[in-house]
């Protein structure tokens, strides 16, 4: 601070400096500034560097599997560590499927929460409920997993399915015998885990909608519900899409809770009632005891696939947000 010439801070004090003196004072670069700028630059570059290092490391370690299996790795469903044959289709499908189920359940619930908390809830109720929803995000995932094994699965198997079977069993996604650990159980657990993220961000987005928009809607004779549906939600749609993508990212990478309830089976099945597997769960399960080099390389490769999936999801989200954000500033500021 003291290095800054007094002339810059208080140009009025003392005799007026000549133009040349002032120019020189402005030109002097304080050494503190140089250090500050260098440190910031290094930190800023470190993050992309970490990303590049991860990608390189994945690529190098996955190469043996890439050269052996090629594109077949993505389309085959045999995962046989004994014979060294690896195909990741069940893992990829299971990851996307369970995350999709999670979003189908979580998005309406989270939006309902957000709308209720910003538009309809009495003022004294808003903060406590919002805090409680956000607390869901603080529960460790292994706790969700245990809850899944001891509460959710028995509930689904012994109470939900015996009733729902009559109505749903004609659907291919509800076919087969239901033993408990399944894509459905994994999806439900994931939906509870991503709900607080989607709800919290959506709530912020809706709070950021200017009161004038609301008032304009109501003034035109819309009911409160019509105002929400036709004015507030469209205004915040970019932010809401961002919230959903944030939840999706969380769901794709979740490991512990999913592996405890999804059944961990390398098999592609259209039915939600059948066991499945996800990429993150398979890596966590098999990495430490992967004895053969090809097994290890296949796990690296499937990790690289997950990396790509998340990059694609993020890219798609960016494009979506840009497209819908045109004209409404709320969304882009909120995310």
């Amino acid at each position: 601070m003291t290095d800054i010439p007094a002339t810059v801070l208080e140009p009025e004090a003392g005799p007026q400096p000549t133009a040349e003196e002032r120019w020189r004072a402005l030109k002097t670069v304080s050494p503190g500034d140089v250090v500050y700028r260098t440190v910031l630059t290094v930190f800023a570059l470190l993050l992309p560097l970490v990303l590049v290092t991860i990608a390189l490391e994945l690529g190098v370690n996955a190469w043996p599997a890439v050269s052996k299996f090629g594109f077949g790795f993505l389309t085959h469903s045999t995962w046989d560590p004994v014979r060294g044959e690896f195909g990741a289709l069940p893992l990829i499908v299971g990851t996307l499927y369970s995350s999709l189920v999670a979003l189908v359940i979580a998005v309406p619930l989270a939006l309902a929460c957000a709308i209720f908390l910003t538009e309809f809830a009495p003022r004294w109720l808003r903060a406590p409920v919002a805090t409680l929803i956000e607390l869901l995000a603080a529960v460790p995932s292994v706790i969700y997993g245990l809850w899944g094994i001891f509460v959710l699965i028995p509930l689904l198997r012994d109470h939900f399915w015996p009733v729902a079977r009559h109505a749903l069993s004609w659907l291919p996604i509800f076919s087969g015998v239901f033993y408990g650990p399944s894509v459905l159980a994994g999806g439900v657990i994931l939906s509870i885990m991503v709900l607080p993220y989607i709800a919290a961000v959506s709530r912020e987005v809706l709070l950021a909608v200017p009161p004038s928009q609301r008032e304009a809607g109501l003034a035109l004779g819309a009911t409160r519900w019509e105002t929400v549906w036709t004015v507030i939600l469209p205004y915040g749609r970019a932010g809401i899409i961002g919230a959903v993508i944030l939840g999706l990212g969380r769901a794709l990478g979740e490991t512990m809770a999913v592996t405890m309830v999804i059944g961990n089976r390398h098999e592609v099945s259209a039915s939600l009632l059948q066991p499945g597997y996800t990429i993150a769960a398979a890596i966590a399960n098999e990495f430490s005891e992967a004895v053969s080099d090809m097994h290890l390389s296949a796990l690296f490769l499937v990790g690289a696939v997950l990396f790509l999936i998340t990059i694609v999801v993020n890219a798609v989200a960016r494009v979506l947000v840009w497209r819908v954000a045109r004209g409404s500033a709320v969304g882009s500021t909120a995310i």
Binding site: I149, G180, P181, T259, N264
Partner: peptide, 22 residues
Amino acid sequence: KGTSVNWPVGLGGQGNPGVAST
């Protein structure tokens, strides 16, 4: 035989506790 194999049928539980609880 192996530390992990291609199971013809069944559900996977994580660790001894995972199998026992399932």
